[in-house]
C-alpha cells in the first residue's frame, strides 16, 4: 500500500447525501476478477447515459473540477460491502473522501486501500462544498500526521479523527495482512485452547 502523509489538491464537490455504493459503482460493473480499471465506471449511471455519452451537469464531466479530494454529502458509502467502490474511487485518482458521515464497511474498505475517509462536521462540510463549488481552484490541504483538513486560501480548518492503528498503517504503507501473518502461531494456540466446531 502507498504511504500517506499530506495531500494538497483542488477538490471535486458532489452535493448529494446518502451516496450508496450502488451509485459509486453499479453491480453490473463488478464482474472483473482483478482490482484494476473500476475507475472507468465510477458513478457510472450519474456520469453516462444509457448510450455511454457523458451526462451534462454531473461534476465529473465538468472539466472545471479536478483533484484527488472528493467532497460529498452526509452518509457516504452506505449499502453494499463491495470494495469495488473504494477501488473505483482510488483508480479514478482520489486519495481522500470528505463527508460528514461514513458508512462503516466503506470506511474500512477505503482505509484498506490507502484512500483516506475524512469525517468533518456538517458546518465544515457546508463551508467546503460552498467554497470549492464556487471556486474550482480552491486548494485543500489534508495532513494525516496532525489530522487536520484546511482550506488554503482562508485558513479555515478542522481536526478529524482516525484510529491510531489505522493511522500508523497509512503512514507506513502497512496492511493488516502483514500483521496477521506475523501472529499465526497465536491463532493456532487460540484454536487449540478453544475447541469449537
Amino acid at each position: 500500500m502507498e504511504k500517506f502523509k499530506t495531500i494538497t489538491s483542488t477538490a471535486v464537490p458532489i452535493q448529494i447525501e446518502n451516496i450508496d455504493t450502488d451509485q459509486i459503482i453499479p453491480a453490473r460493473y463488478l464482474k472483473a476478477t482483478d482490482r484494476e480499471g473500476f475507475g472507468d465506471n465510477l458513478f457510472r449511471d450519474w456520469r453516462y447515459d444509457e448510450n455511454g455519452r457523458p451526462k451534462q451537469g454531473f461534476v465529473l464531466n465538468d472539466n472545471k473540477y479536478r483533484g484527488s479530494i472528493l467532497v460529498a454529502g452526509k452518509n457516504f458509502g452506505s449499502g453494499s460491502s463491495r470494495e469495488h467502490a473504494a477501488w473505483a474511487l482510488a483508480d479514478f485518482g482520489f486519495r481522500v473522501v470528505v463527508s460528514s458521515f461514513f458508512a462503516d464497511i466503506f470506511k474500512n474498505n477505503a482505509l484498506n486501500n490507502g484512500l483516506l475517509p475524512v469525517q468533518v462536521s456538517d458546518a465544515f462540510l457546508s463551508l467546503l462544498l460552498e467554497r470549492i463549488s464556487s471556486n474550482p481552484h480552491e486548494e485543500v490541504l489534508v495532513n494525516l500526521d496532525v489530522q487536520e483538513i484546511r482550506l488554503l486560501s482562508s485558513g479555515d480548518s478542522e481536526q478529524f479523527e482516525i484510529n491510531p492503528y489505522k493511522k500508523q498503517c497509512l503512514q507506513n504503507g502497512y496492511d493488516d495482512i502483514d500483521y496477521l501473518l506475523s501472529i499465526l502461531d497465536k491463532v493456532a494456540e487460540y484454536e487449540s485452547k478453544t475447541l469449537r466446531t
Binding site: 460491502s81 470494495e83 474500512n108 474498505n109 484498506n112 495482512i177 484454536e191
Partner: peptide, 22 residues
C-alpha cells in the same frame, strides 16, 4: 457481519480479522 475483499483476504490468511468493538 459483511466485510470488504481486503478483509476476505485477511480471513483467508489467518482466520482472523482486526476489529474495533462497535
Amino acid at each position: 457481519f459483511g466485510i470488504g475483499t481486503s478483509e476476505v483476504e485477511m480471513v483467508f490468511t489467518s482466520q482472523c480479522l482486526l476489529q474495533y468493538k462497535p
